[in-house]
Write a protein that binds this DNA or RNA. Structure first.
Lengths: 132, 132
DNA sequence: GCTTCAGTTGATTGTCTACTCAATTAATCG
DNA sequence: CGATTAATTGAGTAGACAATCAACTGAAGC
């Protein structure tokens, strides 16, 4: 970090006209505060959610479940994605772990449903991409 | 898909009490419609955005830029993440490609700023994770 | 003009991830 | 009960990804 700090010092000299060591320390502290604004645990959760969504198979499943607005059977979801039965099960399991869908056994069948989190995220994401 | 269709047929028999081939076809069509609700091009864009965010280094950069509310110099961002100078540059480049940040050269320095898309997504994601 | 400096680019490498296959569970049906 | 069915689990593997190193670009400053 020593070298990086030198560069930051030169930058602050450019910006402030003058720059003492204490100015560098203050700026480093400000940057640290920005980074720590959310707790690290929450960031981990957010990254888990993002990782779960950032895959074509899983994102398709979430989108379909959100669009359906009701629970769908695994055997129906099988018709929607292009992976093996096992692959579908792995995908759904990852989505459950990320809190994006919930599963419920119903007799011989298992049904999955999008959570509020999934609905919110898919809606906002679609919106933020539409208005390029 | 032949086998999967058989299972779907049995499922629909369970649900509807009775099920002709045409019922299966109709359900398959409904599912296809759900999947196609958004154009495939838009889905690709959404997946690109998700992939760009789903990485600790890049997500941290976006969060800090959003929290800062102003443009930050590469040399400032260097203090925030734990990768090489080159790794930082690669990360910022990926974020630009995903439309999450913009870059601007200012003399010897290069400054990056969060886009509206990034602000929206980070805000909503943080919110959707807070209310567990 | 040559050097220094800020940042980028491309190639390479080790790690992580998303599948598939095979075996397994749990439930239903005959 | 034994067989079939729906779905899950775990091991293995091919491909994708993130980071680094080294070489490069372009602007600033002496």
């Amino acid at each position: 970090m020593a070298q990086a700090t030198e560069r930051l010092q030169r930058y602050l000299e450019d910006e402030l006209g003058e720059c003492r060591d204490e100015d560098v320390d203050r700026r480093l502290d400000e940057l640290g505060t920005l980074e720590a604004a959310l707790g690290p645990a929450q960031v981990d959760t957010e990254l888990d959610v993002l990782a779960a969504l950032a895959n074509e198979t899983r994102y398709t499943l979430v989108r379909v479940l959100v669009a359906a607005g009701e629970e769908l059977c695994v055997c129906e979801l099988q018709a929607v994605v292009d992976v093996s039965e096992s692959g579908l099960s792995h995908a759904l399991s990852a989505l459950v772990d990320a809190g994006l869908v919930t599963g419920r056994k119903d007799g011989r069948w298992k049904k999955y449903q999008a959570t509020n989190r999934a609905i919110t995220l898919v809606t906002v994401l679609a919106g933020s991409v539409t208005d390029e």
